[in-house]
């Protein structure tokens, strides 16, 4: 039976699952989800198309096609992962494939923010440690546990500390990664701000800017 997809909700403090290793620097969002799959008005069917072209080129040998990686939820990557286009379709495709956390040397900025916004914590580790993990043959055989509060990764073969920005950590623990309601709570401050901005005044006569 196919498990129905569920988006993360509320506070996230722990991720448990198998790890999947993907090697390569500067893996851009066009590769994660090629542009032709962006022709959609929802994200529902993106999971199956994640890394579509890379997978086709590797004819079944891509990490996302290997049987041993089936059901994995912690993705281990190298540097500048998710560079390029701002398409949230990229982390949405990863999420729908089953990824719930990403560990890497570094992440591109917009991709990182998109991951937070949809409930995928991203952690960083030094290059050498990522390499050690990626080269360990047992990495996809063992159940791993990420504890966000402690910022730790634990498994039968590895235990190490993870790095995560404090603001991101706090957002996952509190559930504020889903930012809309937190932002909405400052309704009065927002309304004050729009009235205080110099350019809302001098653009007032402009019919496109007739807000206030």
């Amino acid at each position: 039976m196919i498990k129905k997809f569920q988006s993360p909700v509320g506070p996230i403090s722990k991720i448990v699952g198998k790890s999947i290793v993907l090697i390569g620097d500067d893996i851009d969002t066009d590769r994660i989800i090629p542009a032709r799959f962006l022709k959609c008005v929802n994200f529902d069917n993106l999971g199956q198309s994640v890394f579509e072209d890379d997978r086709k080129n590797l004819k079944g040998k891509h990490p996302f096609d290997l049987k041993s990686n089936k059901g994995s939820s912690i993705l281990i990557v190298n540097s500048n992962f998710g560079c390029g286009s701002s398409r949230e379709h990229a982390p949405q495709a990863l999420l729908r494939w089953g990824i719930r956390a990403i560990i890497g040397e570094s992440f591109a900025e917009i991709f990182y923010c998109n991951c937070i916004a949809i409930g995928i914590p991203c952690f960083t580790l030094p290059k050498k440690l990522v390499k050690n993990i990626q080269e360990n043959k047992n990495i996809n055989n063992s159940l791993c546990e990420i504890n966000i509060q402690e910022s730790t990764f634990k498994s039968t073969f590895f235990n190490f500390d993870l790095e995560i920005k404090n603001s991101s950590k706090n957002m996952f623990l509190s559930g504020e990664w889903d930012a809309t309601s937190t932002l909405l709570a400052n309704k009065k401050l927002i309304e004050k701000k729009i009235n205080d901005l110099p350019y809302t005044k001098f653009n007032q006569s402009n019919e496109l800017f007739e807000t206030i």
């Binding site: 923010c113 998109n114 920005k165 957002m171 930012a179 809309t180 932002l183």
Partner: peptide
């Protein structure tokens, strides 16, 4: 000026603000 993802597009539509470092 900066690029944002769809969840932040939602936030801008709903609040005209985003959360950002």
């Amino acid at each position: 000026a900066f690029g944002i993802g769809t969840s932040q597009v939602r936030d801008v539509l709903a609040t005209q603000t985003i959360a950002m470092n």
